[in-house]
């Protein structure tokens, strides 16, 4: 049995809204320890994962391992229909396993229940990297304010939606996007005196090409946290991470474009 309390605008809802146009299904695994959401875009160019430990989720109840595929559009449409003051609970019961119920209760105790079929997520073939993998395969990381990151992603995506580049050295971080009528180039210098807001940590310079559209889609999710951390690799997808609550986190991976 699973009971997942939701609030309009919380991280779970935020992630669902962000990936609405990229993916049809969110693969959600729940255990007594918490929730893990995974969604891949339909072209398999990007993946987003949300980890939410039970202690960060007030009212979270799960007494067994549950792996379900949630139809994103149905869920988002239902949440949009609800009132901001409603208490929302996503339920998967033993007697109706194959469907999920989204229950809305108003402050006056009026209720609206949505019931929809679960779908096959088909994500069993994906294995996301752990911390050890990140340390060994990623040559550089950059911590920066999430609002700033979103601004850059929006700028890159508006300018050129097909080809962008992130480069990092121990002195600076640069973003580049190629548009049809020109290019945009953004540079951040590492400041010696203050590394709490912006910090570069690289073993060797990294340059990574990608599609800015995907990063822009995820960037708005990262504003749930004050800071984002970018992990760059010469051989693996770009990863962006932010912390949510005490121990929760959101990660997204964007597959690179490589020279033939």
């Amino acid at each position: 049995m699973l009971e997942l309390p939701l609030v309009k605008g919380d991280p779970f809802h935020h992630v669902m809204e962000a990936i609405l146009d990229l993916s049809d299904v969110a693969h959600v695994v729940c255990t007594t320890r918490g929730l893990n959401l995974l969604a891949v875009d339909t072209k398999h160019l990007a993946i987003v994962s949300l980890l939410f430990p039970a202690e960060d989720f007030k009212g979270y109840t799960c007494d067994e391992y549950i792996s379900i595929g949630i139809p994103i559009r149905d869920l988002v449409n239902a949440i949009r229909c609800g009132d901001d003051k409603d208490t929302i609970t996503l339920k998967v019961g033993e007697e109706n396993f194959g469907t999920i119920t989204l229950s809305f209760v108003s402050p006056e105790k009026n209720t609206v229940d949505y019931e929809f079929r679960l779908v096959d997520a088909k994500l069993e073939r994906f294995r996301l990297p752990d911390r050890h993998f990140l340390r060994s395969k990623y040559q550089g990381s950059v911590k920066m304010p999430s609002v700033e990151f979103r601004r850059i992603c929006k700028c890159l995506s508006n300018f050129g939606d097909e080809y962008g580049v992130i480069s990092v050295t121990d002195e600076d971080l640069t973003y580049f996007a190629k548009g049809t009528d020109g290019d945009v180039y953004v540079e951040y210098k590492q400041q010696e005196e203050d590394t709490t807001i912006f910090k570069i940590d690289v073993r060797e310079p990294v340059r990574l090409a990608f599609n800015p559209k995907y990063l822009n889609t995820f960037a708005k999710v990262f504003t749930l946290s004050g800071q984002v951390k970018l992990f760059l690799s010469k051989t693996h997808p770009l990863m962006v991470e932010c912390k949510i609550g005490q121990k929760g986190r959101i990660r997204c991976f964007v597959a690179p474009k490589v020279e033939p």
Partner: peptide
């Protein structure tokens, strides 16, 4: 002239 890689190229279970 770049090749767009896919996530499955990197994170598939063996």
């Amino acid at each position: 002239p770049c090749i767009q890689k896919r996530i499955i190229d990197y994170f598939s279970k063996k």
